[in-house]
């Protein structure tokens, strides 16, 4: 059997044997990715709502800035956060460098613009009559906002899924701010890079398969949710 086939077979064997190292890497990856996605969602969805529905000076400027931040390279985020949390940085005292918290901070910066701009886009497409209808039926501004968010749920869910996909597959921030410490900050992507450097492809391919499987599960869940909601 060829090299790729052998590696694939060995990878499945590793997964079926529930290899401890593999499980630990997946756990760390999910841990940081879910944490950063949830925090970015909690902050980014309301921010997107306020920007989309609000009327304030420099609104277009804010949206342009957010769109620009979508192209922010992970290496740049890694460098900026590194400068702030390294021993000489303004947050150096908190000793965050090479921790999961450092990765989470970097990833939040990475995906906040994604969640916010996708939310702005989703809410902008919602008919203004939903808000007016909610208001005339007696809703408070907050209750009317919930109606709009509910109507925009598919777009907002897509924003969160896109953000999760971005953080679970990124490597620059994990490597620069996490340091790829085994059992602590080693994620699927940093582990794959390490195994590649060592010429050990079995674990790298196993991790690649798991990464794609997670992505598949998330997307199947989204499709199921959208299918159910559209009836």
């Amino acid at each position: 059997m060829n090299f790729f086939g052998d590696s694939l077979m060995s990878a499945f064997g590793l997964m079926l044997s529930l290899d401890k190292e593999l499980i630990e890497i997946v756990r760390v990856s999910l841990n940081v990715s879910l944490a950063s996605t949830i925090i970015a969602g909690v902050a980014g969805i309301p921010a997107g709502f306020v920007i989309s529905t609000g009327d304030f000076p420099l609104k277009r400027g804010v949206i342009t800035l957010l769109n620009t931040l979508l192209a922010l390279p992970t290496v740049v985020i890694g460098l900026l956060v590194y400068a702030m949390i390294s021993r000489n940085g303004i947050f150096g005292v908190y000793d965050l460098l090479y921790t999961q918290k450092a990765i989470i901070i970097g990833q939040i910066i990475l995906v906040m613009p994604i969640v916010t701009t996708f939310t702005i886009s989703a809410i902008s497409r919602i008919d203004a009559r939903y808000r007016k209808t909610a208001m005339t039926l007696g809703a408070s501004p907050f209750q009317a906002a919930l109606v709009i968010l509910k109507e925009a749920r598919f777009g907002i869910t897509a924003a969160v899924v896109a953000a999760f996909g971005r953080v679970i597959s990124e490597i620059g921030i994990c490597m620069m701010l996490g340091g790829n410490i085994s059992g602590y900050t080693r994620t699927m992507t940093t582990a794959m890079a390490l195994q590649y450097d060592k010429g050990e492809f079995v674990l790298a391919i196993a991790l690649g398969i798991i990464l794609l499987a997670i992505s598949l599960v998330v997307n199947i869940s989204l499709t199921y949710f959208q299918g159910k909601a559209t009836g």
Partner: peptide, 19 residues
């Protein structure tokens, strides 16, 4: 205004129903 809206309801020219 929210308090007064509890007594008055408007049906729009092209009403929209929640999804």
């Amino acid at each position: 205004l929210q308090q007064f809206r509890k007594s008055v309801v408007l049906v729009d020219q092209h009403p929209i129903l929640f999804s």
